[in-house]
C-alpha cells in the first residue's frame, strides 16, 4: 500500500495502459509493434492483479501467483510469436500484417 494513493488511482493507470495497448494493437501494422502492444496489455493486467491483491486482500497471495503466471505465459507467447514473426519475414520479406491477409484463404 502506498501512503496517500488510493487503489483507484493505480487502477486508472493500469486501465489507461490497457487501452493504450488496445490502441496500439488495433492501429499498428508492424508485427513486432503489435507484439509490443500485447505486452502492454498483459502488463496492465498483471498490475491489476497485484494491486488488487495488495490493497484488498493483503493476507493472500493469489494475485501475485496469477501475475507470475501471466509473466510466464507472456514469455512463452513472445517466444512463439518471435518464431512466427521470423518465419513470416522469411516468407514475405516483410513483417507487415497486410501480407498476412492471404491466410484467410
Amino acid at each position: 500500500m502506498i501512503q496517500g494513493v488510493g487503489i483507484t488511482h493505480v487502477l486508472i493507470v493500469s486501465t489507461l495502459m490497457f487501452f493504450i495497448g488496445i490502441y496500439g494493437f488495433l492501429t499498428r501494422k508492424n508485427l513486432i509493434t503489435i507484439l509490443i502492444a500485447i505486452e502492454l496489455i498483459l502488463n496492465s493486467v498483471a498490475i491489476n492483479f497485484i494491486v488488487i491483491n495488495k490493497y484488498l486482500f493483503p493476507e493472500k497471495i493469489n494475485g501475485q501467483i496469477f501475475s507470475l503466471f501471466i509473466i510466464a505465459v507472456a514469455a512463452a507467447e513472445v517466444a512463439i510469436a518471435i518464431a512466427v514473426v521470423i518465419d513470416f519475414y522469411r516468407i514475405n520479406k516483410s513483417i507487415d500484417v497486410e501480407h498476412g491477409e492471404t491466410m484467410k484463404y
Binding site: 494493437f25 488495433l26 499498428r28 498476412g100 491477409e101 492471404t102 484467410k104 484463404y105
Partner: peptide, 14 residues
Amino acid sequence: LQSGRMQDYAYAIV
C-alpha cells in the same frame, strides 16, 4: 467484414 486482418476482428471484439 471477413477481411482476414486480425486487427479488424480485434476491433470488433473490443
